[in-house]
Design a protein around this nucleic acid. Sequence first.
DNA 1: TAAGATTTGTTCGTATGTATC
DNA 2: GGATACATACGAACAAATCTT
Lengths: 253, 253
Amino acid sequence: MDGSRRDPDRPRRSRPVRVAEEIKQWVVERDLKRGAKLPSESEMIGLFQVSKGTVREAMRILEAQGLIVTRTGPGGGSFVGEVSAERARSLLANYFYFQDLSLADIYQMRRALEPELAASLAGQLDKAQLDELQALAERHPQPAQSPEEEKQQHVASLEFHARLSELADNRLLGFVIGFMARILTDLTVYRRLYEPPNVELWQRGRRHQLDLVAALRDGDAVRARAVMASHMAGAEAMMAAQEAQIMRQFMAE
Amino acid sequence: MDGSRRDPDRPRRSRPVRVAEEIKQWVVERDLKRGAKLPSESEMIGLFQVSKGTVREAMRILEAQGLIVTRTGPGGGSFVGEVSAERARSLLANYFYFQDLSLADIYQMRRALEPELAASLAGQLDKAQLDELQALAERHPQPAQSPEEEKQQHVASLEFHARLSELADNRLLGFVIGFMARILTDLTVYRRLYEPPNVELWQRGRRHQLDLVAALRDGDAVRARAVMASHMAGAEAMMAAQEAQIMRQFMAE
DNA sequence: TAAGATTTGTTCGTATGTATC
DNA sequence: GGATACATACGAACAAATCTT
């Protein structure tokens, strides 16, 4: 009887992967914070009794996950590096590359979450933040003259939502909304989305953003929520005309 | 004048990282699907004119992101591998390790999303799925006798929500809810969460799950949404007693 | 069962690049 | 500019896993 036979479904983890896990644990155990220095390559070789190549593969694994950053030169080495929101979005986008998301799916989420964000932001922002949002909303006062301009304006509108998401106190709520804004932006930039410019709906959208900033300024959560809900309903109607579109792209880092 | 000076803020990307990006693009350009074979190590060496070590580091990067899997032996090599939901959750958890999420944040999201999921599932499930959910809800008919048992029951309850999330047609909605269920499960298992067993609230939660399955069976979206909303309100009250808890752990793969 | 073929896995020695002092 | 301390990259050799015969 050999109890140590491994499950053939779960392939044997290679040494670099195991070393990466050990390093991760090594960091967690010591509760190292962002910027803390990890042992050097040669120290790792001694610590884990593996060759340089194996250590380097392990480091690349951690680096790909955004957990460490590496610098050359004296005083260089590997350091604990906070995973950036941008990297997290990229890694998550890889997952949805295979998932056949539709625009309807995204708008179902936005309908549920964006009003919540709007309400939670009322009365929480300082003047500079409110002014910045207002400036974003006030760009492109004129209706688009060409499909290209239309595209730009739509990206700008999504930027408004992305900025809003960064201000969220609830980082999970902010991340999910920012993630959706990014997907929609990529779709707008790389694909032709919103082909038929709909001037009237566009104007309503712009109006909504300005109304929202006003409500946030007044600290009126109820109105902020209502305005955003109405905005989402309008945007969704804009989508309804579009075919169900599939996300199918690796998104660059 | 040297126009090719690089920005010192954005460190030079190492060769393995660049090769990984090229391979990724190589795959996207050819629209390779899950299971498609990539060039062998030796072919990569020729293709990108780099050493074996560099190729291997590049492969580890892609592997860490879940984009490829690798097998040894004849017929082995690297293959396009769909990113699993489990891996996506792990990678995202790495991000939130640094983000100071509170239980209040998670429950704000659940309040907004779980009722939406419940409503969208009404009338969409077959008998086997409904029976499975019912079986999950019917576990632990008796109130917990010990803190340990209490913990087990709470994990089981979260399993109900996790299973529900897998059934979602909207993969983004399902993923986010599943992610939260996982975080809460980890917190329950690794930390002492819900220390004071509250029998009454627990019973209400169990009742809600059974009511929800019944509503789903009837295809009654309105009732499903209402039941879930009530369930979330109850669960949140359960949380209110708890201190604001911080997520602070790398979550294992 | 055993041998051979194929492909990834791991090590080591050496050389080069890069940033600091 | 030179010395120093790191990571980066290469190439050759050997080990291990796995499929075929």
